[in-house]
Design a binder for these strands. Sequence first.
DNA 1: TGTACATCAGTGAACGCGCGTTCACTGATGTAC
DNA 2: TGTACATCAGTGAACGCGCGTTCACTGATGTAC
Lengths: 199, 199
Amino acid sequence: MRITQEEAAENRAKIVAAAASKFREKGFDGISLADLLREVGLTHGGFYNHFTSKEELEAAACELAFERSASKLSAVSERPAAQRHVALMEYVSNYLSREARDARVACPIVSLSSEAARRGSALRRRFAEGIRHHIRLIGAAMRGHDVRLGNERDKAIGTLAMLVGGLLLARGVKDADAGLSDDILAIVRKTIRSQLRQE
Amino acid sequence: MRITQEEAAENRAKIVAAAASKFREKGFDGISLADLLREVGLTHGGFYNHFTSKEELEAAACELAFERSASKLSAVSERPAAQRHVALMEYVSNYLSREARDARVACPIVSLSSEAARRGSALRRRFAEGIRHHIRLIGAAMRGHDVRLGNERDKAIGTLAMLVGGLLLARGVKDADAGLSDDILAIVRKTIRSQLRQE
DNA sequence: TGTACATCAGTGAACGCGCGTTCACTGATGTAC
DNA sequence: TGTACATCAGTGAACGCGCGTTCACTGATGTAC
């Protein structure tokens, strides 16, 4: 049953993509390798042809999730300076939208950071790199606009903390208090907007 | 081997207290009932004399963790109005201190919310109640001071989002980039302070 | 107050299940000639 | 280009372990008289 090297690489990529989605939805321990491989149309026995352990897949899945998340921010910072502020605000509105809150899959920081903190150092390092990268990209999206030079990193850190904290809280109260959840989204959006407008 | 009703109640309380600590440290699935009961000096067989399932203990443990967390905030709002601002700032500095970041056990929102979102509705409801209570208490701690009346709830929500997000990020990058982690704590502290000072 | 018995918190072994991981096997692909 | 064989991605059964939960049992406590 040997298959093309190219097909094998595609299968590996499919496994990572499914994991990036399912781990965020259900947590690292929330889905078994057997279920994950079935998701992709494979049986679980062949898993170890691609990875040495489940934890290695977890790291690869986080890397992919962070990359996808970062690409949205990269798009903002690649806009001409005059459009960046509006684009960044759109990003914020999107991040803190009802759709993002209700989606099964969220930003990796919100979905996985508490679990990631308890895993091995390889995963924790990847997580730290993902966070650092996000801070850098938010800073770049601000640069050359209405934020005083040299101040972007501080603003970026504050903004990311609000984004992550806001989405976490909104998702946390969603089922039990939908009104409060909507309020959290709206208020955090407004707070970030006014914070980035000043000075 | 029957024991006093009072002793039994104490044992139950000890189990909940150990769970409140260990679940936050290792996650709900990170510690087994056998290990948890051993922590208290009991064997795991008797667990079901006190609880109908592990999930029931998880809910009780969250309730206790939220109560303890809330009591620190209650202390702030019970101060005379003139002292409240300083007391709240102390609370913020404490929440975002290096000690809090390095502690094995953190605030339940930071430690458990992503996992709690995937559990049963009873636990999710308790979580939502805990968050709502925290917002109310932060609002109360602001009332009658340098924040315009009617605005406390918005400010409280923004503040809680920053606290939670800031601690989550700081804990997330701690091992891989201690300098960034310290910066996050300092910047988020500063941002909250300036946010509560204005108007 | 004293006695007799039912209650029930705790013990420790056992059950059953799902999981990560391993393994012998398959057969088309990749490669050496 | 064609042939012969080694490689290796995938299969499906099996292993071993840890976990939540159950159960028969113990014996001091709580209670009815």
